[in-house]
Structure formats: structure tokens, C-alpha cells
Design a protein around this nucleic acid. Structure first.
Lengths: 197, 197
DNA sequence: TCCATATCTTGTCAGCGTCAAGTTGTCGAA
DNA sequence: TTCGACAACTTGACGCTGACAAGATATGGA
């Protein structure tokens, strides 16, 4: 399926992204090289260059996929809970997404792909995820467009909290005393007690 | 001072770290290359290899310096406030440190330098910074060694909060509506209202 | 059928980290 | 003072990387 002996690969772009995603979670973003991807897929070393202008563009695509997955996870969390529980539910979903996709998450937030001239899709997917959190924490009148919410204390508070917790976990900064179970119990308790209002 | 025409540079190791630090804040960690450092300092391309076994080892040293600076900043914040205000004061100092040293901060937490076989000094300095936050948030009896504190809800809560806030700021995730002043006002307010108990 | 075009290959370039082997300076012991 | 061990540095090489240019090949519409 990924192997086709035709001159044209068929869907090299997709294959490149899939292989890159595999390497990402297995070895980290630093191990992703265009030449290695080409080697794995049996194409020439310059073939990837026809689908991504840059190595950065490929990584941005991976990051955009990550934001899309995060936004979806947040959306699902909101669908299965009542609006008054949205903030806590999305927080928990956020933390679980980060723990399930550590390298993906690290790349989304750690590397500075989101510059001035970042790809449009990356910007779109990341702001979609952001809008999810805004919606989850919004408490105002219901007829306001989510794009018109403004960042206020609650939103920054909630997002900072879950984002920081995931980062601390991924970097192993919490020490050996905090295992996976303990961490989840702690964060859930924080979200219940501090965020639920 | 950084230029000496002797065969032996004198203090090449220090000069390498200083130049690397300059490049770090100016262009980001990705722009730090051993050969470029050698070129800037007028030594051969292999000279840095005699002071750092690895490129990673040099970066780890930079990160360790960062943790040392962070720990110092937290320590100063605690010295100039009463113990009951420590948590809020260290939180504010933490946020200001991150904003003042964006690329340094990103490298400390973003890149996975803190693995199993990470340099001893990096581990030491990072846990020193961690201990500062534990001390600042500790509320138990005063005769307990800080090393024996255990991570509990308050500590994780406080550190997650400031860490996440800094990351969001550095990555520009908050959008154009949140400028530096607004961000500082928001985070200060959060620390006062939510962390002060 | 034929040609424009997308796709892929081959070749090349400079830069990078890393290692090996040789050179030069330093410093303490004899 | 001389000598030898050792640290600091240079030179050279290797394979890897991203990037570009130019040519080959397949595809699909006119």
C-alpha cells in the first residue's frame, strides 16, 4: 500500500506525513529528516521537496494535525457533558490528549513554528482549538459569537493550568513520586475544585 | 578579551557558552552550531569538541544556567516578601523571568534535554528551582526538610499555572488582543485571587 | 494524438556533528 | 634546566542533512 512500483507514487504527500508522524512519536521531532522519509518510502531524496517547500512546512503540517486532533478531543468532551461542566471536562480532555501524544504535543507548543509567516492551516487549526477552550469557559450571554469573546481571567487561568500541567508531566519535572495515576488524580481534583467555580 | 592570538585560547569554554547564549536569545536554539561558535571565536571547527562532548552537552549547560537564574530570581522574590506572600511573589517572579528570557525559557522546558543520562548540573539546578517553588507553596510544619515535601495539589496547581501562562505568552497563543501590560495584569490578578488562598 | 504539466530522479553544493591523528603550548617532576 | 606527560588546539575526513537546478517520465485534458 505504501509501496508502489510506479514512477509516480500516487499519494506521496500523505505517505510522507504518515511516516513522519510515526517517527515523531517514536523518536521525537528532531529525528524527522526529509531524506530519511524519502528512504523509508523508497523514493529519491529530493522527492519530498516537491510536496513541502521546507522541512518546516512538513513539521507545520504535523502540528496542524495535532491541533485538529486536540480541537476534536475538546469538542467531544463538550458534547458529552452539560455546559456547566464544560470547563472541567475540556481541561481533563486536554490533559489526556497531551499525555497520549507527548511528542506531538511538544512539537505543537515547544518549537516556534507559529511565526508571522506560518502556514494558514496551522493558524486555522490552532485557533480552532483555542476557540474550543473559550467556548468551554464562556459564561456570558449566549448570543455572542465565540470569535468575539475576549481573553479574560478565567480563560487564561484554565488554559494556563492544563497547559502547564501537561508540560510538567511530559518533561518529568514532577519527580519519581508522581506516577501516571497520581498525576491524573491530582489534575482532576484541581480541575474539579479550582476551575468548577 | 575574547580574542587572544595565543595557541591556547585561555578560556574557550566560557567564551563558547557566552557566544552561544548570545545566539540563543537572538535567533533561538536551532541557530546554535558548534562550527558557527568556533568561527565566531576564531578557533578551528573541532575546538569546541574538546570542551563539550556533544552539541547536546553545550545546550544542557545553557539550560542549567537558565535554571540557576530562575532559582535565583525565585529566591530573591522570597527574600523580599513575607512567607505568607511567597506563593504569589514567586509566581510573579517566575512569569517575569520567562518573559525576559524567552528563548532560554523555551529551551529549558521545550527541548527534551532532561533525559535519563542528562548532565548532573542540569539536574541539580532544575531541582533547585523546583525546591524554591515547593518552599514557597509549603504550608505545613516548619521543621520539615524541603526535600521531603511531597507534590500535592497546591504545588502542582501553582507551578502549572505560571508555567502554562508563560508558554502561552511566548508562543503568541493569546492573540493580538493581549499585549504585555494586559498579560501581566491578568496573571498578577490570577495569582492574587486564586493562589493567595 | 499531442502537448502542458505534475511528479519524480539524478547530480551537486554548503553546512553540520563527530571522530582520528597530528601539532603546539603548559607545567610539574626529576 | 631539561624532559616528559598532558591539555589545548588544528587539520582532515566521513556521512549526514536541507536545498537547489536540470533532466526524465508519467498523466490527463484539448
Amino acid at each position: 500500500m505504501t509501496e508502489q512500483n510506479t514512477y509516480h507514487h500516487g499519494d506521496l504527500r500523505r505517505a510522507l506525513l504518515e511516516e513522519a508522524g510515526r517517527i515523531l512519536e517514536a523518536e521525537g521531532a528532531a529525528s524527522i529528516s526529509l531524506r530519511r522519509l524519502a528512504r523509508s518510502l523508497g523514493v529519491s531524496h529530493a522527492a519530498p521537496g516537491h510536496h513541502f517547500s521546507d522541512r518546516a512546512e512538513l513539521l507545520s503540517e504535523l502540528a496542524a494535525d495535532g491541533y485538529a486532533g486536540l480541537a476534536d478531543a475538546l469538542g467531544e468532551a463538550m458534547e458529552s457533558t452539560r455546559p456547566e461542566d464544560w470547563l472541567g471536562a475540556t481541561g481533563k480532555a486536554y490533559i489526556r490528549f497531551g499525555m497520549a501524544n507527548p511528542e506531538r504535543y511538544r512539537m505543537m507548543f515547544g518549537s516556534q513554528l507559529m511565526g508571522e509567516d506560518c502556514p494558514e492551516r496551522l493558524r486555522a487549526e490552532s485557533s480552532r482549538a483555542y476557540m474550543m477552550l473559550l467556548r468551554a469557559s464562556y459564561r456570558g450571554p449566549p448570543d455572542v459569537d465565540p470569535a468575539d469573546y475576549h481573553v479574560d481571567i478565567i480563560e487564561l487561568f484554565a488554559w494556563s493550568l492544563v497547559h502547564g500541567a501537561v508540560m510538567l508531566w511530559l518533561d518529568g519535572q514532577l519527580g519519581p513520586g508522581v506516577d501516571r495515576e497520581t498525576f491524573l488524580a491530582l489534575t482532576d481534583r484541581i480541575l474539579d475544585e479550582k476551575v468548577g467555580r
